[in-house]
Amino acid sequence: MDALVLEGISKNFGALAALTNVNMRVQVGEVVGLIGPNGAGKTTLFNIVTGFTKPDRGRVKLFGEDVTGLQPHQIAARGVARTFQIVKPFFGMTVYETVLVGAYLREKDEDNARQRAEVAMKLTGVYHLRNRYARELNTPQLKLVELARSLATQPKLLMLDEIVAGLTPAEVDAMTALVKRIRDEMGVTVLLVEHVMRFVMNISDRVVVLNYGEVIAEGSPSEVSSNLKVIEAYLGGKSGS
């Protein structure tokens, strides 16, 4: 069973081709890492799946249903949650309220929604911050809150856009453990975009490499890291870092 299927997705911004004929599959229960240099089209791909951007060509299928052209809230209703590369917090809300917004997607009853929100906050370790306003939190905390509110929607597919960027190595390890728990205990499929190799290679079942809008390689983390073409595109593009 496929959680997500992309068929021949192309997207141009003016003269710039952001994505060219991208085909991709994510199976239910998988953790898939999407890597590639800056400007490779990773965030555009996320935006297309979640309905923020319409593809010029191609189809998006979620759990067997064609969802091309649906709006983001409709995508969310079909079981997709995502975090943003640059966090988008609700500064004027407490952490509790923020996560409750997510919980209301599937829990119409207030008490159930509150329970659901509390579970999500405890899992992500932000429960002790529940009465703090988002504007009082630092970036790592905001990332966890963003993850908590996403989980509160009870997603089937979780999309993480550079969730560990800017975190310390210890925080990256904690996030790795957390994402594994989410996959194992909640059975959530995960698609993540990441620059931090340690995180991607540790956590992914499969890695897909995008370069200039095209899929240039995919496979297990070890296959991909030994693929010379990838090292050229990725490491070369990042000037040997």
């Binding site: 979640t50 923020f52 709006q71 983001p72 809230h73 969310a76 209703a77 949650a81 995502r82 943003f84 988008k88 917090p89 609700f90 500064f91 004027g92 809300m93 309220e97 923020t98 917004v101 997510g102 209301y104 997607l105 963003e146 509110r149 996403s150 929607t153």
Partner: peptide, 14 residues
């Protein structure tokens, strides 16, 4: 209120 605070984030939460 979530719309006021961030429309895109709110929309992604359904």
């Amino acid at each position: 209120i979530s719309i006021r605070e961030n429309e895109e984030a709110a929309e992604m939460l359904g």
